[in-house]
């Protein structure tokens, strides 16, 4: 992920991206539309942000308070220290990062093989996709049993309430999208460079590591972003498979806002705002590559 910037420029055709297509939307209409969408996007975010600095008295007030007269930071201290905020952030960050690395490493290699050698053909591709079709409820109890009981009885490892347990599961859930994106990406990437390298005496593995991966860096970045997003936001499995240790941000937040005796909107907003910091950082980090990386197949000239 770190070697992306310079290399990718020539790879996916940065110049094409910048100039873009030529379809013209009328200038005014275009910016009005963007403006309306930004307002639609910002309003809930503003409300979250302002809720995070409201004192409890302003929280449930009628009419609603648009800006508190006495902003407070108590919600932040509360959410982070008292309601599993730090623990959740720590866990979520580790889980999401490791999941991302695993999903990208496994997904990219598999996708490369599927794209270059048509390994498994259509069926393997669909099999990967089908992993995403099952409603969680069908597997959540058996996975719980596997994690809390059988993994210990059969393999002597405890997976329940551990980060590694969630990481493994999230990797599996993130793989379909990673595989598909990278599959499409490798399909549109010309094979000539790798072939030239092979002719020069590179092994296939070297060609993958030294030629294909760097060339595919933009695609990898965007695949990584989506794997991260998935692991960062997943709730149901984290709720069921966590107890006191592997508490993630969504679980901590859900505990605050979705249940009786849990209308801790101030705290929930505070934790949401804090949890957006890595999100924004990541957004800034990848946004340049995100779009470029997603240029998929069939759009060759």
């Amino acid at each position: 992920m770190t070697s992306v910037p310079e290399r990718s420029r020539d790879a996916a055709g940065a110049t094409r991206v910048v100039r873009g297509g030529r379809f013209r939307v009328g200038g005014v209409v275009r910016f009005v539309f963007i403006g309306v969408y930004v307002a639609f996007l910002l309003l809930p975010l503003y409300w979250m942000a302002v809720t995070s600095i409201k004192s409890q008295d302003d929280q449930l007030s009628d009419p609603p308070v648009w800006f508190p007269s006495d902003p407070t930071s108590v919600n932040f201290a509360d959410a982070l220290n008292r309601f599993n905020g730090w623990k959740g952030l720590q866990n979520s960050l580790i889980i999401a990062l490791v999941t991302t690395v695993l999903a990208v490493a496994l997904g990219t290699t598999a996708a490369y093989s599927m794209a270059r050698f048509r390994t498994g053909g259509k069926h393997l591709a669909f099999w990967f996709l089908s992993q995403r079709l099952m409603p969680p409820i069908a597997v959540i109890i058996p996975i719980f049993l596997l994690y809390s009981r059988y993994s210990e009885e059969w393999f002597g490892v405890t997976l329940i309430d551990t980060r590694i347990g969630l990481i493994l599961l999230y990797t599996v859930f993130a793989l379909p999208f990673t595989v598909w994106m990278m599959y499409a990406y490798f399909r549109q990437m010309p094979a000539e460079l790798e072939e030239a390298a092979l002719v020069d005496g590179c092994s296939r593995l070297q060609a993958l590591l030294k030629i294909a991966w760097p060339l595919a860096a933009p695609g990898i970045v965007s695949a990584a972003a989506f794997a991260f997003i998935f692991a960062w936001t997943e709730f149901l499995f984290a709720q069921v498979l966590g107890r006191s240790e592997a508490v993630t941000v969504p679980v901590a937040l859900a505990g605050m806002i979705t249940f009786f005796q849990g209308n801790l909107y101030g705290q929930a907003s505070a934790l949401t705002v804090v949890s957006l910091v890595p999100a924004v950082l990541l957004g800034i980090l990848v946004q340049r590559h995100l779009v470029r990386g997603l240029t998929l197949g069939a759009v060759q000239g």
């Binding site: 930004v38 996007l41 859900a254």
Partner: peptide, 30 residues
Amino acid sequence: LMTLFVIPLFISPVVVGGFFDLFVRRPYGI
């Protein structure tokens, strides 16, 4: 703007639902 646009993706859907509940509930919602 691009950075702003991706922010909703980083918020768990369960939290988005909770907040939209807060926005629409009477009398506290906006």
